[in-house]
Simulated scan of single mutants.
Amino acid sequence: MTYSVRIAKHYLLSVFILLVATCTAQGADALPSWNEGKAKQAIVSFVERVTAQGSADFVPVPERIAVFDNDGTLWAEQPMYFQLLFAVDRVKALAPQHPEWASQEPFASLLKGNLKEALAGGEPAIMQIVMTTHSGMTTEEFDQIVRDWTSSAKHPKTGQLYTRMVYQPMLEVLTYLRANGFKTFIASGGGIDFMRVFSEEVYGIPPEQVIGSSGKAKFEMRDGTPLLMRLAEINFIDDKAGKPVGIHQHIGRRPIAAFGNSDGDLQMLQWTCSPPGPRFCLFVRHTDADREWAYDRASSIGRLDKGLDEAGIMNWTVVDMKNDWTKVFAFER
Rank of each mutant, 00 (worst) to 15 (best):
Y3T: 03
S4D: 09
T24V: 15
Q26N: 12
A28R: 12
W34E: 07
N35D: 08
G37A: 03
I43D: 02
R49A: 11
E63F: 04
V67N: 02
D71F: 00
E77I: 09
L84V: 03
A87P: 00
R90I: 03
P96I: 05
H98E: 05
P99K: 00
P99C: 00
E100Y: 02
W101H: 07
W101N: 05
S109P: 08
L119E: 03
I126F: 01
M131Y: 05
T138Q: 10
T139W: 07
D143C: 11
R147C: 15
W149M: 09
S152T: 15
K154E: 14
R164G: 09
L177D: 07
N180R: 15
T184F: 01
S188R: 05
G191M: 11
D193E: 13
Y203L: 12
P207Q: 06
V210Q: 09
S214P: 00
K218E: 15
F219T: 10
F219H: 09
R222E: 15
L227E: 11
E233R: 13
I234D: 04
I237P: 05
A241V: 15
G246V: 14
G246N: 08
I247N: 02
Q249V: 04
Q249P: 01
C273F: 03
P275G: 06
P275R: 03
P276T: 14
D296G: 13
I301Y: 11
D305W: 07
K306V: 15
K306W: 14
I313R: 14
M314D: 07
D320P: 00
T326D: 01
V328E: 04
F331T: 09
F331L: 03
E332H: 03
R333C: 02
